[in-house]
Design a protein around this nucleic acid. Structure first.
Lengths: 150, 150
DNA sequence: ACCTAAATATGACTTTTATCATATAAAAAG
DNA sequence: CTTTTTATATGATAAAAGTCATATTTAGGT
């Protein structure tokens, strides 16, 4: 479905939204460690998002990534679009190029509405809202505890 | 979502279901040409399906692939499972390993039901039923006409 | 029996995706 | 003004997915 880059990106942004702030930046290493994501790979993904103003960053000591209020108004769809591109949600489930409401494939009538409601959700909910209602935070609170961070 | 192999496989099986029969086998080349699929690639996929008894084949002159009544009772899910494996439908949309009804990710409540109804459809409808209700047949009737086959 | 047409089996090649590594640039701290 | 810390940029490597090519087997036709 989504590429790993997108998934990693979304998880990282959600983590940022709930933990970082303009006054408290978070670096790639910390995010990667907390989320069990390969750090150099995540870095590249975060740069893409930063370039498209979906997240913010500052360099130097105590630098890192964070979310402005503007960033928090972005949607998860924005992240996916930035990393994987639009086409992710435009393909027919069976890959028929001409599949549409007029010329539906055999699962179009069931797949298409499902896709629409998922898309609707991904486009309308803001990162902020998503982060607030998130109950499962991150992979490895255990790790933080083991590290002594918690 | 699905791998290309799966998509190609499904389209080929649907084509077989509506066109071939135990007395009228169809070869890889014809299927590939009609569906605009690379022939050697399709061949490999059809072999996998044949080995798992989802389609049937006979070798030699006038040989090819076809569907028995038994084959026609299989589902599209069987095809996907044979080619891509189960895990295709078990992953969390955002890739959280521990995502579940108890520990849902932020799109779990919307994604999970959608996935279930799609799966339900893919598992319960037989190939035969699918083929019958299919209105969009294949990519390139034009090609066949241009070739003089029609 | 021999030839031919087709599936089968295997492997090589290419492209994409994912991962890792290195060098540069910027900003804070001493 | 130098050092250190972190993002940024770029590219190298690895793994997976997709594509193509070749040889082998089987079965029908002659």
């Amino acid at each position: 479905m989504l590429s790993k880059s997108s998934k990693y990106g979304i998880r990282a942004v959600l983590y940022l939204a709930s933990t970082a702030s303009p006054t408290k930046n978070i670096g790639t290493k910390e995010i990667a460690a907390t989320l069990n994501i390969p750090a150099p790979f995540l870095a590249k993904t975060l740069q893409q998002l930063s370039k498209k103003k979906i997240i913010s960053s500052i360099k130097g000591p105590h630098g890192g990534f964070f979310m402005t209020n503007n960033n928090l108004e972005k949607s998860i769809f924005d992240i996916i679009y930035c990393i994987d591109g639009q086409h992710k949600f435009e393909e027919c489930f069976l890959g028929y190029p001409e599949c549409s409401d007029l010329e539906p494939c055999v699962v179009h009538d069931v797949y298409s509405p499902l896709k629409k409601s998922l898309l609707q959700r991904l486009k309308t909910k803001t990162i902020l809202e998503m982060a607030k209602e998130s109950t499962t935070p991150f992979d490895s609170l255990e790790n933080l505890i083991a590290d002594g961070s918690l």
